[in-house]
Structure formats: structure tokens, C-alpha cells
Design a protein around this nucleic acid. Structure first.
Lengths: 224, 224
DNA sequence: CGAGTAGTTGACGGAGCTCAATGCGCGTGG
DNA sequence: CCACGCGCATTGAGCTCCGTCAACTACTCG
């Protein structure tokens, strides 16, 4: 399950090194490691889906735009997460690096080959897709049925669970990113943070650093 | 899993007949056809996911509940659609018949068996999952970035495309269902309908019958 | 030290929710 | 056959949450 790390020297951007990605148990594919800088596009909506990606370090957002130009962030992908997985020929959404990020990429042809030969690989893919589906459905529930404060609380808890056991969270993303993920405005997100601080549910030593002081209160607050 | 009654007194409900489901091209599985009445639960959140389903007639909704008890409809499934597909052991959502409905059910063990033997079957499953994922993401975009009128317009267009080429739509679901799908109230949905009628975009001969009079206007209106 | 970006705070208005009343179709029973 | 009741849909009035606009603060980088 553990990938084989090879060299993480801080070279020039887009420096590519050989890499290997583990897809499920025992299935290891040859890939390439690549760096992207803050806000750089990794792939765009409509482009040919030639690779599947895995976050090594940093964070990645997948986004779509409404007709009026307002963006909706559909998911954040943290180290270890796979993204860009689409059976169709073209990507139906875009992906960008939130901060400077490192990702591993594997050609789709290799994936297809692996699934054709190995049933375990096909099942691993299915599990990944269904995880993403569950996330998307949870997201729809959040957007549909929660108020502003509830969304932010749920977001923090989700992040705390995914990132670490420690109650300290280093937010990789800006308020604008959080707002576009939760379908709110930066002002409303900001107000929710300060309100939660006033209620002693969290501490905000700096805007990107959150300390969960009262997890119970957050869980109570996020209840839709 | 629901208790499967055979021949309830006074009606053919839950009458089971043998049936076959085509999963992708060439892969045909042995299944059972079953009837459900209006608002009847087909499976519930948390139950063991023992079957995969396909709508034969009628319509099915998949739902989840927020902590405050308000429900969010995640998707409507029309004749031909597959639902209940989850690699995990338990269902993460519930499914109910919107009106009286007929569904085909196939045991998961048969599906697993088919995917283990036939690569095409595994790919067909992947395609189904990815379709659902795309739907869920589109839904999240709608809930996050569209206003009330835009949501209703998008919903009608979506339904018109899925149902028939004719501009006449027979809504299988109530205003409450539409509201819970679009994360609005029945009042707001109703107002959106009457507004669209006032704008000569649609006709409403009866509350369940919609005639798309000006598709262009609807498409303009749904633009988020 | 100054400019630019990110974040916070306040005042105000509007889209949609809540509450309430009314209208409408349909089945049941007098 | 009509009266009544029941569930669903529509319409109206008021209120609330959150978006908009604007000012101000805090950080970072040159």
C-alpha cells in the first residue's frame, strides 16, 4: 500500500522524476512525480483525460464553473488522495494546486492495462470511485441542508479528521477557497470563524492556523 | 434489507418474478422483478447492501437525512437507471418508490462474480459509478451556485431530456419531492413554476403536467 | 517604508423561508 | 348525486439569514 518515494529535492518547477504509485493492494504502477506551484492548473475541464493523479504533498482542488463564472470547488485532495479518475475520454472538471504541490501521475493506459489483467486493481478503482461518490453526496447534503455556521464547522471537523489526530489544523487553503467549497462568501466564512472563536470552540492564532478547543461544540454546531 | 413478502393479502404487492438484467454489453444477470407502492422503502441507510437495483417502471428517489431530520433527495432514478450500487458492505443512503414502481434486483454476489470473470462487466460498473459521480457533482454545483428559479428550470430541462423528446413532462414526483431535491421549500418551487408560466416559458395544465413552451427561455433561465 | 494581497468587521438590502389562509382534485359516505 | 374531508398546491405577508458593498486591519514582499 505504501508508495516508493524517490527523491524530493527542491528542483525547478515541473521537474519530473520517475515514481511509483500503489493502486490498491499489491498493484504498483510506474508513474511520474511532478511539482505544481500555487494556483497552477493541473488539468482543465474538457481536456483529454490522459493521466490519473495522486497527491504527494500540498493540496489540490477540483473545480467547476457556473455559467455566470462563479466557481464551485467540488473537493479538496490532500496527500494520499487520488484524483482525476474518469472513465470517460475527457475531464469533466478542472484541478488546480492550492499551494505549491507535488503529485504523482500515472498514464491511463497503464491503469486500463492493470484493470484488464488484475481483478483486484479493478476493485480498487471501484472503491476509489465510490469513495468520491460518497464525498460528493455528503457535499450535496451539506450545501442543501446546512446553514453557514454549520457548513464551516463540518468543514473543520472533516479536515481535522483527514489531516491529523492533533486538534491543530494548518489550513492549506484561503478563505476564498473555503467559501467556494462551501458555497458561501469570504465574509460569511470569516464571520463564522470569529463567532466560533467567541464561543470558545476554536482558537485562531493566525488566519491559517486553527486549534480545535471544544470538539463537542463543533460537532453540535455542525448538526444540520 | 427489506423483508420480502410474497403475496400480501389483498394485492399482488411484492410479487416476485424471475427477471434478467443487462449490465453493460453482453453481460446478463439473473434477477428478480419486484413491485413497490408509493413511498415504500426499497432499502434503508445502514442496511446490508445485498442487491443492486434497476428501475423498470415508475420512479425511485435516493435520500439522506440531515441531523435535524430534514431530508435531502440526492437523485431521482427513472426507468432504465441503476441504483443501490455500493462496493461497501452497507448502504450509505435510503431508496424509496416515488409512485408505484417496479424494479429488478440482482444479488451482489452475482455482480461480484461477473466482474471477477469478465473485464467488460467491471468496466460497465465503473462507467455506471462515474455517471452517478458526475450527477452528484452537477447536483452540488446546482445547489451551491444557482438561485431558486435557476434550479427549477435546470430540473425541468434535465427531466425533459431524460424522459422524452416531447416537450410534455409528466412529473412522477410531488412538489415536496422537487423541493427536497433542489433544497428549496414547496412554496418557492410553486412560485417558480407560476412565474415560468407567467413568462410563457411553460404551461401547467395540471400540477403534475408540464409543457415546455419556450425551451430557449428555460435554458437562459437555468444558467447559473 | 510603501504597495499589494488576504482577512476582518460593519451597515444594509434582498432572496428565500416561515407562517397562515385559500383553492383544488379526488375518494368516501350519507 | 352532492357534501364533506383530506392531501396537495397555490398565494400572500412578514421576517431572517446571508450576500453585497465598503471601510479598515494585518502580513508579505520588494
Amino acid at each position: 500500500m505504501r508508495e516508493i518515494g524517490i527523491e524530493t529535492a527542491g528542483g525547478p518547477l515541473h521537474h519530473r522524476v520517475s515514481d511509483a504509485i500503489a493502486l490498491g493492494q499489491g498493484v504498483v504502477l510506474q508513474g511520474t512525480r511532478m511539482r505544481f506551484q500555487r494556483n497552477e492548473e493541473i488539468f482543465g475541464e474538457g481536456e483529454k483525460a490522459e493521466y490519473v493523479y495522486r497527491v504527494v504533498s500540498g493540496a489540490v482542488r477540483t473545480i467547476r464553473f457556473g455559467a455566470d463564472g462563479r466557481r464551485q470547488i467540488l473537493a479538496f485532495h490532500l496527500p494520499g488522495d487520488v484524483f482525476g479518475l474518469e472513465p470517460g475520454a475527457a475531464h469533466t472538471l478542472s484541478a488546480e494546486a492550492v499551494g505549491d504541490a507535488e503529485v504523482s501521475m500515472v498514464r491511463r493506459s497503464l491503469i486500463d492495462q492493470a484493470t484488464a489483467q488484475d481483478v483486484g486493481a479493478a476493485h480498487a478503482l471501484l472503491r476509489l470511485m465510490s469513495k468520491e461518490l460518497a464525498n460528493a453526496q455528503e457535499h450535496a447534503l451539506t450545501l442543501g441542508r446546512k446553514g453557514a455556521g454549520e457548513r464551516v464547522a463540518a468543514f473543520l471537523l472533516q479536515l481535522a479528521d483527514r489531516f491529523a489526530q492533533r486538534p491543530e489544523i494548518d489550513l492549506p487553503m484561503s478563505r476564498a477557497d473555503i467559501a467556494d467549497y462551501l458555497a458561501l462568501t469570504i465574509e460569511t466564512v470569516s464571520r463564522a470563524f470569529t463567532q466560533m472563536e467567541r464561543d470558545h470552540a476554536i482558537d485562531l492564532p493566525s488566519s491559517r492556523h486553527v486549534v480545535v478547543r471544544d470538539r463537542c461544540a463543533l460537532e453540535l454546531l455542525q448538526a444540520a
